[in-house]
Computed example of a mutant assay.
Amino acid sequence: MTDKTSAGILLFRRRPDDGLEVLIGHMGGPYFAKKDDGAWSIPKGEYIAEEEDARAAASREFTEELGLPAPEGEWLPLGEVTYSGGGGRKTVIVWAVEGELDPDQVVPGTFEMEWPPRSGRMAEFPEIDRAAWFDLDTAHDKLGKGQRPFLDRLAAQLVS
């Protein structure tokens, strides 16, 4: 069992009808190819707390996952959540930043894994295979369960 720590940025925008939208990415790779609900993620990635600042890691991971610079603007801390997954516990810390981004401009980073399993062959897959804007209710369905609290925290911060 391995504990991992990740940091990310939840990009959001305000819509004319007073609604909010967030930008999330559909997880790449063969395990998520045919899944939708619960198969999306906030752009984030692992870092080692003793070696890198969480906010710097969030910025770096945003760029690595989307192939675009991290957004400028006020970083609203959304705190952290810890959940089980991938054979261990994962702690994720997230900031929200208001901004615009065209999902068609995303050029995702890639990762390698053995595929098919136990084949001895390595295959390359995109970190995310697409990104899209969703209202908070839809994003709640799309995001993996462990990341959903960040949506409620964003809504609460912007209302108060």
Rank of each mutant, 00 (worst) to 15 (best):
W40S: 02
H26Q: 11
I9S: 08
G146H: 04
R153E: 11
V92Q: 13
E112P: 00
W115S: 11
W75C: 07
F62W: 14
K90E: 08
Q157V: 07
R14A: 12
T91S: 15
A96H: 08
K35L: 09
A139P: 11
G88Q: 11
G86E: 02
I128P: 01
D104Q: 07
P116R: 12
S59N: 09
D137W: 00
F150P: 03
K44G: 12
A49M: 09
E46P: 03
A131S: 07
I128Q: 06
F111R: 03
P126W: 02
E51L: 10
E114R: 08
P69K: 02
F111I: 03
F150L: 07
G146R: 05
A96F: 04
V94I: 14
E112C: 01
E52S: 06
A123T: 08
T110N: 10
Q105S: 14
E52N: 00
P71G: 04
G28L: 14
E80F: 15
G87R: 06
A96G: 07
D3Y: 09
S84E: 15
D17C: 10
S160T: 13
D17Q: 05
G109Q: 04
A139C: 14
S59F: 00
Y47P: 02
Q105N: 12
E61V: 00
Y83N: 02
V159F: 00
R15G: 01
D53H: 13
R121T: 02
V94S: 13
V106L: 09
R121I: 01
P117G: 00
E98C: 05
S84Q: 14
D129N: 13
G88T: 08
F125A: 10
L11C: 12
G25P: 08
M1K: 15
G67W: 11
G19S: 14
A155W: 03
L78S: 02
T138L: 10
V94W: 04
L76V: 12
A33F: 06
G8K: 08
E80R: 15
G109W: 09
F12V: 05
A49K: 11
T82C: 13
V22K: 07
R153G: 02
K142E: 03
S84P: 10
W115A: 08
S59M: 10
H140K: 08
E114M: 06
I9R: 12
A33K: 15
V81Y: 01
A58P: 06
T91F: 04
A155C: 01
T63R: 15
P69A: 01
K142M: 14
E100I: 01
S84D: 15
A33W: 10
R13Y: 08
P149D: 00
A57H: 14
A58F: 13
A7F: 05
L20Q: 01
P71T: 04
G45M: 13
D36L: 03
E52P: 03
S84F: 05
P116I: 11
A7V: 04
L66A: 12
A155L: 13
R148N: 07
F32L: 02
P103N: 12
A58V: 09
Q147C: 03
P71I: 04
A7H: 06
P69G: 02
M113I: 09
R60H: 07
I24M: 11
A39S: 09
T82H: 10
K145Q: 06
